[in-house]
Design a protein around this nucleic acid. Sequence first.
DNA 1: TGTTGACCTTATACTTGCTGTAAGGTTTAC
DNA 2: GTAAACCTTACAGCAAGTATAAGGTCAACA
Lengths: 131, 131
Amino acid sequence: MKISDVAKRTGLDAKTIRYYESIDLVDSPPRRENGYREYSEQGVQQLGFLRKARKFGFSINECRVLLALWVNPNRRSAEVHGLVTEKVRDIDTHILELKSMKKMLSELLAQCPDDDNPNCSIISKLAAGQE
Amino acid sequence: MKISDVAKRTGLDAKTIRYYESIDLVDSPPRRENGYREYSEQGVQQLGFLRKARKFGFSINECRVLLALWVNPNRRSAEVHGLVTEKVRDIDTHILELKSMKKMLSELLAQCPDDDNPNCSIISKLAAGQE
DNA sequence: TGTTGACCTTATACTTGCTGTAAGGTTTAC
DNA sequence: GTAAACCTTACAGCAAGTATAAGGTCAACA
């Protein structure tokens, strides 16, 4: 299977696939006579796994760990559970930060006249002394 | 005022301040005889403005626009309002994405035995065929 | 058979927003 | 006097790709 087919099947960009190979996140596939990469079903599975793990918010390095766990028949599900639990906590923290930002911006919006006047409390607030 | 004092007053790292200067986000301050940067009160204000805008989630390029609006006496508050409204929308989108990720991960967690057994539905789910 | 267009390859640079490091000059405190 | 704590520059690196250039290959159509 050629790289563009793998791209279609996994949803990853062909460039991203080559990038993952360049950072040794996935095995280098064998090459055809013409130098083209020839992917096996297994290679496609691996890349599909990565696509999903990335969509779930795992970093590349976390993906390395997940891939290793995937192929390890002696893995303990508790380890996977721990990783995912931590990721959920990260996401929660991130959500809280965003909500706080949103709240502050919304308060500013409510005070801005939203017209042709230069007076704008948003700008004033940003320009205000250190708090 | 020296750069470390500015760093203390604005909450920015001295390196970040030099970085902002290097990308022409702020004016280059004059130098003392020994080559040290000498900041005016205005320079500090500008950097404090940036600190806050960055904390509110504006990108460097959005900060450029905000700085320009700040110094423009003919600005229309509607323009600022529009920028901030868009930013709030971005944040909302981001929050929704994170919530969706969290939901999916939480569902996986509930099905993972969290013990010494290698059977783990999280890994299986990641490894499952394209969906 | 020629050629066009869509693919494949590599290498390198760019992105965002900094942070770290090296190598040196200056100032301050004891 | 000297050691610590500053200041300066320049360059390299981080995540996680994306863009570009310059070229090789392949499939279809006239």
